[in-house]
Amino acid sequence: MKTKLFSYNQLDTFIHRLSGLTKLLCFILLTSAVMLTYDIRVNIVIMILSMILMRISRIRFSQIKIMLIYVMIFLVTNFILTYLFAPMYGTQIYGTRHDLFVIAGNYVVTKEQLFYQITKFSKYLSVIPLGMIFIFTTNPSEFASSLNAVGVSYRVCTSLSLTLRYFPDVTRDYTTISLAQQARGLEMTSKAKFADRAKSVAGILVPLILTTIDRIDLISNAMDLRGFGKNRKRTWYARRPFKGSDNACIAICILILLVTLYIRFFINGGYFYNPFVQ
């Protein structure tokens, strides 16, 4: 079963209609809001918001399943390791100590530690869906055109969207080459020793690079022949003009950021939200 990782899916929803630049800016603004505070209330609000947005953009669960699995593995490992290395960090931050139960020796579970770790967990969970929305709803060419509009060189923008566009082709080449080399005896499974596997990877990379160079050669000729680089500027077929809705979205996100900053400096009085000291 082949799932397309990192691929834009063509739908017509409110989110899809927004300019790629808007989505990038909103992503950065909301991520900053989450990163600049350590407040579970902010995280939960943004998490709910991102779930709603995901719903609106009609991203199917099957599309993000594999990504989600990896993310969850990472988060759970992170959760456990954080506890193992610093079981008392929560009490240090919040300055109080409420023991819940003892696991073994020094490993005591405190309310503070639990709260600290859950907040951290919710931080990731609120930001990751936003990233997924950006990847799945942004047409690479349209995104390239909006980057160009804010002053990035169009050569850079075009190569960016071409890279995204060629990603599936190169993946396909990789699979073909890898299978053909395995047939000749290259061992790619975990049975092989690390050194052997490193060698096997080289056996796949050389042909992969060669075929990719062939591709680049062909596409650059095709682009030259159709006048790429003729002028200092270019126009974009996929360009979406900035609309009222784009401005509105950015304004809302700026507002959210300002509110969280207000909470940080005037309500929490610091980076951490501390419910243990009233």
Binding site: N139, S141, I219, A222, R226, F228, G229, R234, Y237
Partner: peptide
Amino acid sequence: GQFIGLSVAEDIAFALENDCV
């Protein structure tokens, strides 16, 4: 190997884009 655009329309338009139409 020579398709540049992500959609048919975009690919057809490539020469025009470079011409700043």
